[in-house]
Design a protein around this nucleic acid. Sequence first.
DNA 1: AATAAGATCAACCGCTCTAGC
DNA 2: TGCTAGAGCGGTTGATCTTAT
Length: 332
Amino acid sequence: MGRSPCCDENGLKKGPWTPEEDQKLVQYIQKHGHGSWRALPKLAGLNRCGKSCRLRWTNYLRPDIKRGKFSPEEEQTILNLHAILGNKWSAIATHLPGRTDNEIKNFWNTHLKKKLIQMGFDPMTHRPRTDIFASLPHLIALANLKELIDHHPWDDHAVRLQVEAAHAAKLQYLQHLLHSATTAGSPVDTAANSLINGNIIAADIMEPTSHLVTTSAATFNPLPSPLPAHHTSAHHPHLSEAQTSASLQQLLGCETDGDACFMEFCKGGEGALHEAPPLLSPSSSLPSLMDVSSMANVGDACSTSSYGGGGGGAPSFWPDLLLDDPFMIDLP
DNA sequence: AATAAGATCAACCGCTCTAGC
DNA sequence: TGCTAGAGCGGTTGATCTTAT
């Protein structure tokens, strides 16, 4: 255990690699393979530590490295996988041939993270930021920008995230308002009225999620009945299965019954999980998987398909958020 | 043209994990 | 079973490049 001494010993060279060093490293590995990285520098005639050699090879010199801009498809894959895996760059990199974990990490930190933040998302959870009062003007603007869908040049994932986020956040906000409205004279009363009167709920703006907000706002029971004994989700402790099913039907805008609707929803998710079965083992302790697995609390529809690799892949914030405890919203 | 600010990305640091003894 | 060395990972840094003023 402990940290292995590395570049800080014996005056080994650090910093940028020269073309000569690159050539030595490439030639040696092509001839002998890398073998033990620790032994390699000496054998290859390099005044570098093994760790530095390994990094240079894996991140830059490897022949199968793909360089250049990330394609929209790659960007979407990263977004999808990050929503599921979090900062597991090496795991994400295994699904992007030719891209290194370092490159993906840099791309995330310099592009995608900022993009999500600008869209009002928490880049770590992929959920709308919960400081809703602070970001309300932004959300209102988003929710009322139909042009966003019609004309915005962003890729599908970004648009979908933005639209869904606006509505999910509205829903969360509304749920809070409904709860708060019981307090007479509450400063949120006015806001609630204006919301319900249409200032924010513009049911005709965005289908299908727009009417999700209105229907749920109209029918949402702020004090749902207790769960059946067999249904003890920690995530959705106040929703009964029947309520969940019915709410889903409404929320997802389905003609069919709630279970079938939910199945459809699971199947309809973008391909992240379809393409990533090796990453989704039941024994995995990746915390962000909870977002996905929690979908199973509704009807077990997604759990098997997700873990089995054949199923869902919905935006991770969605089902959780829609079914979340209405009073769990973080408020300033 | 000069300079400041921001963006990018290669490389390093320090930690954890794992295989071998 | 416990210890160690080596490999790998994610976070961070800092040099360089680009853009704005």
